[in-house]
């Protein structure tokens, strides 16, 4: 049979705290970047098979913008930041100070290049914030790779982030944290941070934090 992970309630709480600390710091960075208040939801820790991972971000055909980073250092894994097309367009408009910027599946050429580079930069900042907070909390040295950005069906994008762990297992432990803009405002940012540590990283993490 396949390896099923088991997490105790305490371990789950530790992983939720990881999401809180990391995504909390990332939400603060995004808030500063946009000059708007960004809220963070309570992190969700899921043990999911690959199909369920894709359901978490809207299902296999959902058009998404996905930014993917390999996490390197004492703990390894993948960080995925997922926005839907409209949210990604809004971020591009804010970052480029251009309300006319459009981002859709039809966008191409220079417009697409500008959008991709703006989104990659946002990804760098957010992932950097997430991992810095995590490094401080755990005392582990963690660095992100360069961003890998894709704009396509969620199934096509998200499987890229699962390739590494799929060599070992058919399940991923996912720390999913959603960020949202305040409801009263007109614009709406709603993104997901999915931190998918490699299976071998969990023992290291729990040991480092003094819970075995």
């Amino acid at each position: 049979m396949m390896d099923a992970f088991h997490l105790t309630d305490l371990q789950k709480d530790i992983l939720k705290e990881i999401g809180n600390i990391g995504a909390g710091n990332a939400a603060t960075s995004l808030s500063q970047l946009l000059g708007q208040k960004i809220d963070m939801m309570v992190p969700n820790v899921e043990i999911a098979d690959f199909n369920e991972v894709i359901e978490l971000v809207g299902g296999p055909e959902q058009p998404i913008v996905g930014l993917m980073f390999q996490v390197e250092g004492e703990m390894t894994g993948v960080m995925a930041i997922v926005f839907d097309m409209r949210e990604a367009e809004y971020l591009v408009q804010k970052i480029t100070y251009n309300n006319q910027s459009r981002l859709s599946e039809q966008t191409e050429g220079a417009d697409l290049d500008i959008a991709m580079s703006a989104l990659s930069e946002i990804g760098n900042i957010l992932t950097g914030s997430y991992l810095t907070a995590l490094s401080d909390f755990t005392g582990m040295n963690l660095q992100p790779s360069v961003p890998h950005l894709g704009m396509d069906m969620a199934g096509a994008i998200m499987t890229m982030g699962l390739l590494e762990i799929s060599q070992v297992t058919d399940y991923a432990i996912i720390i999913d944290t959603e960020i949202r803009q305040e409801e009263e405002s007109h614009e709406n940012i709603n993104g997901n941070f999915l931190f998918i540590p490699d299976p071998s990283s969990f023992q290291k993490l729990f040991a480092k934090l003094g819970w075995n």
Partner: peptide, 10 residues
Amino acid sequence: NIRTLGLGSC
């Protein structure tokens, strides 16, 4: 019919 959704590198 039989189908699969959202093939990327798969």
